[in-house]
């Protein structure tokens, strides 16, 4: 028994049909072709599937697709404005804050949510905010630096 869901993703109205027990992550990836959010665990422990739901940072693996009905979803695919990367995206490239890159979309979405709420975070705030985004490659050092560089740039803007 399938359900039709009408929702907004990155500002676009979209409809899809899904099973009632399907996660938002599976719907984004499988139904809408938005594979930027990754499944690293499926249990909310790694943050690779981070998106925002009505502006609130969530793991899309812990949201049912049907719950998106009438809501607003934002994913990594919506971060850049046309050809212009978001300051966080540019900072991650400039500061080599990614190695394999699988955690990067989730971290970018999470960091964006942080800077919208806390434009001038301490390193400790960045680290605790991102504690739910596992990265196995970098040791987080360059990630924290990149977030701070983007934050500084966004404060100047």
């Amino acid at each position: 028994m399938s359900v039709t869901v009408s929702t907004t993703v990155n500002g676009d109205s979209v409809d899809f049909v899904c099973a009632p027990d399907e996660t938002l992550l599976d719907a984004l990836r499988g139904r809408l072709g938005l594979t930027g959010a990754k499944e690293g665990c499926g249990t909310g422990d790694c943050g690779a599937c981070s998106v925002t739901l009505n502006g609130r940072l969530v793991c899309s693996c812990l949201v049912l697709a049907v719950e998106a009905e009438g809501q607003e979803i934002a994913t990594v695919e919506g971060m850049a404005a046309g050809e212009t990367l978001h300051p966080l995206q540019r900072a991650f490239i400039d500061h080599a804050a990614l190695q394999c890159g699988i955690c990067t979309p989730g971290i970018l979405v999470a960091a964006k949510a942080l800077l919208e709420k806390t434009p001038d975070p301490s390193d400790e705030e960045v680290r605790y905010w991102l504690a739910g985004n596992l990265c196995r490659c970098t040791g987080y050092d360059k990630i924290v630096r990149a977030v701070q560089a983007a934050a500084a740039e966004m404060r100047r803007a």
Partner: peptide, 9 residues
Amino acid sequence: IGSTQVQGR
């Protein structure tokens, strides 16, 4: 409880 993401829900 959980991460920032989990706190959202």
